[in-house]
Amino acid sequence: MRNVMKNIVQKSPWIYRINAGSCNGCDVEMATAALIPRYDVERLGCKYCGSPKHADIVLISGPVTEVVKDKVLRVFNEIPYPKVVVAVGICPISGGVFRDSYAARNTLDSLIQVDVNVPGCPPRPQAIIDGIAKALEIWKTML
């Protein structure tokens, strides 16, 4: 019964995007490329939601600049459990082109637990969808 429930629940992932100082490249890939008819993620039950309190999977892009760091943490803490974190692009992993900048001193995984990394600058839409699929597997173990 519990397994059946898990399988049912993981068919309704609601996605929330946090832009942590990104250059918008990854956001364009997430918002348009992953949602255009060609790569329809709604067939998996996904839905982009506007409120962090409705989210199940969080997509974070950008190098987590000093200015937005506290805000990112605050929004992240407003997401109810169980939640899965997907870091999109190379920036949250190492800083990418913003590495060693005076304004971006933390990687994302030094602040919060990251479940899936999707590297790329920007990553291809297929890679983002693959990252969401991997996040679903992890989400299933959390239920």
Binding site: M5, I8, V9, K11, S12, G45, P82
Partner: peptide
């Protein structure tokens, strides 16, 4: 899908 969404929401923290 609405039924799945509802079951999902029941499993979430309030």
């Amino acid at each position: 899908q609405p039924i799945i969404d509802l079951i999902k929401l029941m499993h979430k923290e309030t």
